[in-house]
C-alpha cells in the first residue's frame, strides 16, 4: 500500500489529513499510533475508498483507489471497524460472514465453504447460528474479523481492535492476528499490543505522520511519546517486555 501526500477535510471545514505519506510493504504488520483526533480512523476509511482524498493518491498494489476500481479495492482491502456493532449488521453470524462474499457473487456451496473457513480461522465456528448482539465482546471482535477474512483480502486494516476487550479476549485476538500471514495496518492506543504484534509503527498527529520506525525504538523514546500524547501503561518497560515476552514471529 502506498499513500502519498493525502489531504482531506470534512464538509464542515475541519481538516483531518494534512499530507499523509505512508508506504507498507507486502506482508508487513504496521501499528498506527497517535492521540484521539489525529486522523487515524479517517485515514483508514481512505484505504478502501469510503472517503475520497481531496488531494494526493493511494495505491493498493498497482491499483489506484478510484471510483472505477472500488469493487476490486474493497475486495482486497479488509476494513475492521472499531465498534463490532457497526460491523455486524445481519441477523445471524453466518449471514454476516456471508455478506461480503455474497456481494462478490458467491452462492450456494461455494459460499458456505467460504463462511465456514473464515469462522474456523478465528475460532468462532460454534457461534455461526447466533445473533451478533448476543455474543461476548471477544467473540464479536473475532467474528468481525471473520466477516472481512471471508473476502480473502490482501491487506487488513483494523481500527482499535482491542478497545473494550477483557485480557483474555485481547490475548485470543493477538493469537488470531499473529496467525494471519497477510499485510496488516493496526490502529491502536494499546502500546503493548502494538509492540507485541508489529515490528514497525507509525505515529500520527494532527493529520500527519510524525514518526516511523521499529516499534521497540519508538516506544522507548519518552520525548517522542510525550509530544504525541502517547503514554505507556504504568510499570511497562518496552525494553524488558521485548526480551521477556515470547518473540514476535520472524518476518
Amino acid at each position: 500500500m502506498d499513500i502519498r501526500d493525502v489531504h482531506f477535510a470534512y464538509p464542515d471545514g475541519r481538516k483531518a489529513l494534512r499530507g499523509v505519506d505512508l508506504r507498507i510493504e507486502h506482508g508487513q504488520r504496521v501499528a498506527l499510533l497517535g492521540p484521539n483526533g489525529a486522523g487515524k480512523t479517517t485515514l483508514a476509511l481512505h484505504c478502501n475508498g469510503i472517503y475520497e482524498a481531496d488531494a494526493g493518491s493511494i495505491h493498493i498494489g498497482a491499483l489506484p483507489v478510484t471510483d472505477a476500481n472500488l469493487p476490486e479495492i474493497r475486495r482486497c482491502v479488509g476494513l475492521v471497524f472499531q465498534d463490532p456493532d457497526d460491523q455486524l449488521f445481519m441477523p445471524t453470524v453466518r449471514d454476516d460472514v456471508a455478506f461480503g462474499p455474497a456481494n462478490l457473487g458467491l452462492r450456494g456451496e461455494e459460499l458456505d465453504v467460504r463462511v465456514a473457513e473464515a469462522l474456523d480461522a478465528v475460532g468462532a465456528a460454534d457461534v455461526a447460528g447466533r445473533a451478533p448482539h448476543h455474543l461476548s465482546g471477544g467473540e464479536q471482535r473475532r467474528v468481525a474479523l471473520a466477516t472481512v477474512q471471508a473476502m480473502r483480502p490482501d491487506l487488513l486494516v483494523l481500527d482499535e481492535p482491542t478497545s473494550g476487550l477483557d485480557p483474555a479476549g485481547r490475548r485470543e485476538l493477538v493469537d488470531v492476528l499473529r496467525g494471519l500471514s497477510i499485510t496488516q495496518l493496526v490502529i491502536t492506543h494499546d502500546l503493548p499490543f502494538a509492540l507485541e504484534l508489529c515490528e514497525r509503527a507509525v505515529i500520527m498527529n494532527d493529520g500527519r505522520a510524525t514518526a516511523d520506525g521499529a516499534t521497540a525504538d519508538l516506544l522507548v523514546d519518552q520525548g517522542l511519546l510525550h509530544a504525541n500524547r502517547l503514554e505507556l501503561p504504568f510499570g511497562f518497560d518496552p525494553a524488558v517486555a521485548r526480551r521477556d515476552n515470547r518473540p514476535t514471529s520472524p518476518r
Binding site: 476494513l79 457497526d86 455478506f99 456481494n103
Partner: peptide, 13 residues
C-alpha cells in the same frame, strides 16, 4: 452512517 460504511467496505452496492 457507520454501518453503511461497513457495508460498503464489504462490497455493498
Amino acid at each position: 452512517e457507520r454501518v453503511h460504511a461497513a457495508m460498503l467496505s464489504r462490497g455493498y452496492t
